[in-house]
Write a protein that binds this DNA or RNA. Structure first.
Length: 422
RNA sequence: GUGGGUGUAGCUCAAUUGGCAGAGCACCGCACUGUGGAUGCGGUGGUUGCGGGUUCAAGUCCCGUCACCCACCCCA
């Protein structure tokens, strides 16, 4: 045997169990997206390097992207995020699209990072955006979608929360502290790091980027001020809308949330588990300049992205993993070699009637066949032996209850359907 | 990219100061020739991640390498 070839570092294999979970999440994302009137789209997974140079964070472009030269000499990037692609697609058809656009997508992304729990180099992300509406109610709709998704996968508001802030509010407050707008990116970075550094290390970092003592104190009191949102007319409207959307339990103001990406211009939000044990589940916000940055007219936009890996970890941690029976519920045994073709034919008939059926393919001992049926998660096992053939019947055993009875062939499909819904 | 931890059967893990590589679960078979889960008995399964070094002797010590995990960085 030759040695196993290693998978590419940071990639994940989706065995059927994991694939079932990924598809389940995809179906929940679809359900929630569509319930708010969003349409699915997809972009290419390869983009020109320059697309990201326009607006993504420097770290993301320079250090975390897979970049290579194709055979024609173009610099190509494996997409590390979707938003620039979305901005490009919108800019390219700006005159023929009718705004606002409500679009969503789920697909693979790549970032060349050091893999850790909840962070792989190849990952899947749900992206959902509302383009062409600048109102706080649009921001609230996206936060409500995030909250509705958390609820729909079984996460409670005591377990996960959508934390919201507004960069314009924060920038105004920083200016009031005498902090220059040019220091904004670095100061936002400092705020973003409040929970990660010790108080001393945090202040030292603040001094490094040129803040004085009173300014640091001012920032500290800002990010502890849970009522700060009341100073922002935009956030006032936002939270009024959140209330009427009925998701107020899931959404709250959090002045320390600021986000790392540079292109956010207004409202920003993240979803976290309340204990703060995991990474953020989603992140997003308003990005009013992005479409113009890739060559379109100025269009306001708001959206967020959620990775599949962290959501899965959080679901597992809170015991909300769905029960995803992957296999067919019906298993047709082969009594002996003489009945093989009749058994296969029986299974084919049942499939034509719309049932999901696994055929055993050889005349193993019935004991073994039942055992396999049980192991693959089948509910009903069908046996067609000499006794049944004589009476033109099929025996059906329900593995859950252990009950068994025979059905005439003509009544079998209906009998199975009834058993399956019981 | 920086710092640290771990790597033994398919899975979870043992193995004393360096001294014969083991257990549970899983799998296969039998008890059980028309019926799964339970029980009993038996069995398969390993180049101890990979490569080198020290030693009479290495799972154990040393060096390198790969992978995973943790903390930074950054973020989904």
């Amino acid at each position: 045997m030759s040695p196993l070839i290693q998978p590419v570092r940071g990639t994940l294999d989706y065995y059927p169990e994991e694939m079932a979970l990924r598809n389940w999440l995809y179906s929940k994302m679809r359900q929630v997206s569509e319930s708010f009137g969003y349409a699915e789209y997809e972009g290419p997974m390869l983009e020109r390097f320059e697309l990201y140079a326009a607006k993504s964070g420097a770290e993301l472009v320079e250090k975390q992207s897979y970049v290579f030269e194709d055979r024609g000499g173009e610099r190509i990037t494996l997409r590390p995020e979707l938003t620039p692609t979305l901005a490009r697609m919108v800019a390219a058809r700006q005159r023929q699209l009718s705004f606002p656009l409500r679009w969503w997508s789920f697909g693979p992304f790549w970032r060349y990072e050091k893999p850790q729990k909840g962070r792989s180099r190849e990952f899947f992300q749900w992206n959902i955006d509302l383009i062409g509406d600048e109102t706080p109610e649009a921001d609230a709709e996206l936060a409500a979608i995030a909250a509705t998704f958390l609820e729909s996968v079984g996460l409670k508001s005591s377990e996960t929360q959508v934390l919201v802030n507004n960069r314009q509010l924060m920038q105004g407050e920083l200016e009031a502290l005498g902090i220059k707008p040019s220091a904004r990116i670095e100061v936002f970075g400092l705020i973003d790091r409040r929970d990660k550094l010790s108080a001393q290390a945090w202040r030292a970092r603040g001094k490094e980027i040129g803040l004085d003592g009173p300014q640091l104190m001012g920032i500290e009191s800002l990010i502890e001020n849970q009522d700060l949102w009341k100073k922002s007319p935009s956030l006032q409207r936002f939270f009024r809308a959140i209330d009427v959307f009925g998701v107020q339990d899931y959404v709250r103001f959090a002045p320390h949330v600021i986000r790392g990406l540079d292109y956010y211009t207004g409202t920003v939000f993240e979803a976290w588990d309340t204990a703060g044990e995991f990474r953020s589940i989603f992140g997003g916000g308003r990005y009013d300049d992005l479409v113009s940055a890739v060559g379109g007219d100025l269009v306001p936009a708001v959206g967020f992205a959620a990775g599949n890996v962290v959501v899965s970890l959080v679901l597992q941690a809170f015991g909300h993993m769905p029960d995803l029976g992957g296999a067919a519920p019906i298993y047709v045994t082969v009594f002996d070699q003489d009945y093989l073709l009749q058994s296969l034919s029986l299974a084919a008939d049942l499939r034509r009637a719309g049932l999901k059926v696994t055929s055993h393919l050889s005349a193993d001992k019935l004991q073994k066949q039942f055992k396999q049926a049980d192991r693959v998660g089948a509910r009903l096992v069908l046996v067609m032996g000499p006794d049944e053939i004589k009476k033109n019947e099929v025996s059906v055993k329900d593995l859950r209850s252990g009950n068994q009875r025979s059905y005439p062939r003509t009544e079998l499909v209906q009998g199975l359907q009834e058993l399956l819904i019981s």
